[in-house]
């Protein structure tokens, strides 16, 4: 093994340590302040770890971890929030299924709005609606504060099985994400490069979207108020190019945190509309300036 590879490996381990430290901090502070039970704690940490490790699989492709930019994460969050509103006793499975469906619908919606050049108008309308809803339903109580801090779905989790599911998620997503890192990196170069090297773009896009969706769901369930600490890592990443996956996780968690906050203080409908709004707006900005 040459020096360059050893250096790369060491860097990779350092980044992993940074991520684990971040996740541990988020989890334990939440646990101490909000008296989380052991099974909840396991779930919280596992889901966070799954998100972080999947991001590690895309290390080196900093600009294309597109949870925020292309709106997938927002769409998934929208699906989960909507499912929680509609099926409060349903559990994570319903949320997961719903988020997949909503993602597909969201893709179709983007296609239609692009064709009709309608996205700008829709974004503005959604923003106004969300703002009106927020003003009308503003409510900041202690219970809503707890929800903001520990993630929107903590009240739903009362047994061990979500933790087991989270570990399964890690196993399912982490291994292929790491092993397929070169193919994923190739995918991020764009359709032209991906097809030039002999791959089919559309099936790969579908698989990646599904993986993103699952990870976003994990991040939603595991997020807490200290995800905002990720803002520090975003600036570090720009300067030193370190711990990208930590920042990626933090960005996801931060986005979800904003949605959870909106939901807590102004209701699920506001959060849902805000998710759509942010997703469309994010897409619009990326297309304009990238």
């Amino acid at each position: 093994m040459n020096q360059e590879r050893i250096k790369k490996l060491l860097l990779s381990n350092f980044e992993l340590a940074v991520t684990l430290a971040l996740l541990f901090a988020v989890t334990s502070i939440n646990a101490f302040i909000f008296n989380i039970r052991l099974n909840e704690l396991t779930w919280l940490f596992s889901a966070s770890l799954a998100a972080g490790l999947l991001a590690k699989g895309r290390r080196g492709n900093a600009g294309n971890f597109n949870y925020l930019q292309n709106g997938d994460g927002m769409a998934a969050a929208l699906g989960i929030i909507a499912s929680m509103v509609l099926f409060p006793a349903g559990g994570a499975i319903i949320a997961g299924i719903f988020c997949l469906v909503s993602l597909i619908l969201f893709r179709a919606f983007l296609l239609l709005t692009d064709l009709a050049s309608f996205s700008g108008l829709f974004t503005n309308f959604s923003a106004l609606t969300a703002f009106a809803y927020f003003i009308h339903h503003f409510d900041l109580s202690s219970s809503s504060l707890q929800m903001i801090a520990t993630g929107a779905f903590r009240p739903m989790i009362s047994s061990q099985w979500p933790a087991a599911a989270a570990f399964l998620l890690i196993a399912v997503l982490y291994v292929p994400a790491i092993q397929l890192r070169h193919e994923i990196a190739l995918f991020t170069l764009g359709r032209d490069f991906f097809e030039e090297t002999g791959y089919r773009y559309r099936p790969a896009l579908l698989v990646l979207e599904l993986m993103r969706c699952m990870v976003t769901a994990a991040a939603v369930l595991g997020s807490g108020v200290f995800a905002a600490a990720g803002m520090v890592f975003i600036s570090l990443n720009r300067q030193e190019n370190i711990a990208y996956y930590a920042t990626a996780f933090a960005r996801i968690a931060l986005a979800v945190q904003i949605l959870a906050t909106l939901q807590a203080v102004s209701g699920g409908a506001t959060a849902s509309i805000a998710a759509i709004c942010a997703a469309i707006l994010g897409r619009y900005i990326t297309r304009r300036f990238s």
Binding site: G60, N61, G63, A185, T188, L189, G190, D192, F193, E196
Partner: peptide, 13 residues
């Protein structure tokens, strides 16, 4: 092998 357009992801070594 043909020369592709510019890559969408420029954050790669």
């Amino acid at each position: 092998c043909s020369i592709p357009m510019l890559p969408e992801n420029m954050d790669i070594s």
